[in-house]
Nucleic acid binder design. Structure first.
Lengths: 338, 338
DNA sequence: CTGAAAGCGCTAACAA
DNA sequence: TTGTTAGCGCTTTCAG
């Protein structure tokens, strides 16, 4: 492999400034030093275009000034927003973020986490694909702080930042019921272990309390949401389905597309509420009523919590923060245009 | 700061296996070794739950098995898709990716790039916020491979993966003209230096060739796209504006929202073509005609190019790949529903 | 307040 | 094939 150009080292700086290595190191780390000396050292650094080698620093100091962030899919707007927010906090703390997308695969996730431990990351923000503890075990046993968001990890005592999935869906379901809809179909994916089951639970209990029959269409993978399936679900049983509650953004997309293919019109024809908001949601006709998750807020809080731990607070009991969602009533639920 | 649990080192493994450090190192690096010895070493590794310290490896080998990726905004769907794709390639090569969002700020970008050099990244994928060469100088002078995508860096000889912005906009403009529209307003942001100017150029030359008056509304920042501005632009001059061409995704969002506020209906009232596609674009009424960029493909190719360089091919002349966009004719341009 | 020396965990010359 | 000996660039005892 090609040999990389050398780049000045701290030793170069020291000799250039006529001081010892240690003194140069002090200056680099803002440790008190005679002002005169400091100036000389800084001058030398500038002249040599010195850039500290973070790898070497980390090796000795057993810290890498990097955190890991693992999410199922970088391209998903929810995770992307969380990443952007977390990254900003990290940057403020002079940390970088190593990001990996697990693709929702528990095995991939595990191997990525191990690789991050090997890179000596100082902390981890994780949106778990797998809710079993053994995925984060390598972090816990290495005593590296972990904050999970979106979903918890069973039995792992880590900080967590979640949203009130169940309450949010309850509210949406009640809203639909209050409009007089009786056959309300919930569509989602069961692969999202925790979030999926919480949302389904919110729907189911609300329907039960209203003595309405619960009808759910849960798929393992969004690609299973085909026109045929949806059509069959809509046509089935006595009477017709009044309303649909989609349990996550991807499902909303799929349902919207399929409904259009089927020639059904959201609004007059069938009501719809989506878990997850989109930028275009209020440009659709009718404007989409949604449950909005505070994605950026989740990322921000997760990062803040993590840095609180990294920067000293190692032993405090774990915090479990649950954020409110926002129920944005627009039109697709049956409410009329303002 | 809390002292982290030790974690087995290669030396531990070696003594546990009764071999020398170097032999253990050989096994770790898959260098030929007596099968018998290898087995013992591997057993020791497993027993001690050994995880190589990548920092130490990198320090010696002047490679970090990490690449940097810098984009303006992680939350932007275009960049998010590129990241996801690039990350997959990196992962295949057993590399991790350190991601930073520059926020479109040239100064932030510069400091982030320097920090990446200090972390000894083995390569960089960059969607430049700043088209001046000095942003990537620190990489070039350190002889670290760089691939830019979406926008080039002036005067820097790096591999680049771009799209045919100009041709794409020309095609869209011609399409609008062929529908008989005469007053076609182009809206975009001038801050996206290269992409912005290419797209405007594609529009302008096409309009000129058709002997039509070019009208552009270019803002520095999307927040400037207020209802008032758009309204004024639409009302101005003799006759009315027939069609709008939005020059990037953010602008499309803003324009769509504003149009709705103004009570104007895309389609019958005014035609619209968007540069950049959205998932919901074909659920809108009318379905949005768009220029789609191959975002994931850009990320994938950028990463592949980068690894080609990292893994040996250091001196080949730079490649400049330009990808085609896809013109998706739906309805908002005036074409009628199938 | 400063300097010399000893590593961090690993790889890479060289020997053996 | 294997082991020995140096470092990579930095931080950090421990003296001066």
């Amino acid at each position: 492999m090609h040999k990389r150009m050398a780049g000045a080292t701290l030793a170069d700086v020291a000799s250039r400034a006529g001081v010892s290595l240690k003194t140069a190191s002090r200056v680099l780390n803002n440790v008190p030093v005679a002002p005169e000396t400091a100036k000389k050292v800084r001058a030398a650094m500038a002249r040599l275009d010195y850039k500290p080698n973070e790898l070497a620093r980390g090796l000795k100091g057993r810290r890498s000034a990097a955190i890991g962030m693992v999410v199922p899919n970088l391209a998903d707007p929810f995770h992307a927003a969380a990443m952007q927010a977390a990254q900003e906090i990290a940057h403020k703390n002079k940390y970088v973020v190593i990001i990996t997308g697990s693709g929702g695969d528990a095995e991939a996730e595990r191997s990525q986490l191990e690789s991050l431990v090997g890179r000596q990351v100082d902390g981890l923000i994780l949106a778990p694909s797998d809710n079993r503890i053994n995925t984060v075990e390598c972090f816990l046993s290495a005593n590296i702080p972990v904050v999970v968001f979106d979903r918890p990890v069973n039995g792992a005592d880590t900080d967590s930042i979640l949203v009130r999935n169940r309450d949010a869906v309850r509210e949406a379901t009640e809203h639909l019921i209050s409009h007089g809809y009786r056959r309300i179909l919930a569509i989602g994916s069961r692969t999202n272990l925790y979030t999926g089951s919480e949302r389904v639970a919110g729907y189911a209990t609300t329907m039960a309390r209203a003595r309405l029959k619960e009808e759910t269409l849960l798929v393992d993978n969004e690609t299973e949401l085909t026109t045929g399936w949806i059509e069959k679900a809509l046509e089935s049983g006595p009477g017709k389905v009044d309303a649909i509650l989609t349990l996550n953004g991807t499902t909303t997309m799929a349902v919207l597309r399929i409904l259009r293919q089927l020639g059904r019109t959201v609004g007059p024809d069938i009501a719809l509420i989506s878990f997850d908001d989109f930028e275009l949601a209020e440009v659709l006709t009718p404007r989409l009523t949604v449950v909005r998750q505070p994605a950026a807020e989740l990322g921000r809080l997760a990062a803040e919590r993590l840095f609180a731990r990294i920067l000293g607070e190692r032993t405090t009991p774990c915090q479990h923060i649950t954020l409110q969602t926002t129920f944005l009533i627009r039109e697709s639920c049956g409410c009329k245009e303002r």
